[in-house]
């Protein structure tokens, strides 16, 4: 982040740095602050909650939300939304196990095939939204149904012979093997976060995304191919939903029906908690990353507290509201 380059001054340095940040970047910091706060409170309530092993386990689960939220962030940045996440993810997970049949030799092809599935669904979403002017909510809602039907129908309700296959060991290792004492999956997440942050902040493609999100007419008049960029973003969203399916099946071993359902609302909530404006044009992936960690850590604290299902659901919704009220409000009218 942008620290350290400011000139020396007598006032507290942190305050200067904070003041020098844009509101969007401050929101990213708040999101990280919220994540850390949840860990601290969790550790106070439940000693050992912030231990290395526990933090690692929570971060791995947060990465699943984080991958899906990456795609969601891209489309939200241009004022869109992707409701097709649950069954693109679920279909991807089923495709991975059925095409690899659990063999390491087929892992690479299976992963490529699965990611291609994500890209194709995203392409269809993007064409519908950008070229055929179907509202994003409708297009991606329809696509979710289409993918649900195809996943259920082609796998015969997940009763097909190859449907019970496990993810290849090589794929399972993404989540299960440690590199330098840290799960490989977390390095993948870090790498993706760096690439996306670079893409959004230091490339013309990234600037185009923000331009479209702020005002698509102005962006069009400035010579940006708004439709093409939109299609690419929906493809990225599909790609990341498929990636979410791959790591989730790597974690659980097998594909299950409905495994993608929690990831729709969690991916949107993570992005928004991280300061990504649902109206488009504002926000950073690092915020969504912090939002994913906050959400998953919060659920973990509630689980550690043995809070019943219903209480978790209520606290979860309440926490999102509190965070939104703290910094998700729009400007006052007039």
């Amino acid at each position: 982040m942008t620290s350290g380059t400011e000139s020396v001054a007598p006032e507290p340095r942190w305050r200067q740095v904070l003041a020098s940040l844009t509101p969007d970047r401050r929101r990213v910091l708040y999101a990280f602050g919220a994540a850390i706060l949840v860990f601290v409170v969790g550790d106070l309530l439940h000693s050992g909650f912030a231990s290395t092993a526990s933090v690692k386990a929570i971060l791995v689960i947060a990465s699943f939300v984080g991958f899906v939220a990456a795609g969601q962030t891209f489309v939200i940045l241009v004022g869109g939304i992707d409701l097709s996440v649950p069954w693109v993810l679920n279909g991807a997970a089923i495709l991975l196990v059925t095409s690899s049949l659990g063999r390491d030799g087929r892992a690479a092809q299976a992963i490529l095939l699965t990611l291609a599935l994500g890209l194709v669904t995203g392409l269809a979403n993007g064409i519908g939204v950008a070229y055929l002017a179907v509202p994003a909510v409708v297009m991606t809602l329809g696509m979710n149904g289409i993918m649900e039907g195809l996943s259920l129908g082609l796998s015969k309700g997940l009763t097909c012979a190859s449907c019970a296959s496990y993810a290849p060991k090589a794929v399972q290792n993404i989540v299960r093997s440690d590199v330098l004492g840290v799960p490989a999956d977390l390095f993948l997440w870090l790498g993706i976060a760096i690439v996306i942050t670079f893409l959004l902040n230091a490339t013309t493609f990234g600037r185009r995304i923000y331009a479209i999100g702020n005002n698509d007419t102005a962006a069009f008049l400035a010579g940006i191919n708004v439709r093409l960029v939109t299609v690419v973003l929906y493809m990225l969203s599909g790609l990341f939903a498929a990636l979410g399916g791959i790591v989730l099946v790597a974690y659980g071993g097998q594909a299950t029906l409905g495994m993608g359902d929690p990831y729709l609302f969690q991916s949107i909530a993570a992005a928004v908690i991280g300061g990504v404006s649902i109206l488009g044009g504002r926000g950073h992936y690092l915020g969504a990353l912090a939002g994913s960690i906050t959400l998953v850590a919060l659920v973990s604290v509630l689980l550690a507290e043995n809070m019943p299902d219903w209480g978790r659901s209520v606290v979860y919704g309440g926490a999102i509201l509190v965070i939104l009220l703290l910094y998700g409000r729009e400007r006052r009218h007039l």
Binding site: F265, V314, G317, L321
Partner: peptide
């Protein structure tokens, strides 16, 4: 969309 997402959970 965000408000009702949260109240949905509640």
């Amino acid at each position: 969309i965000l408000v009702t997402l949260a109240t949905l959970s509640i």
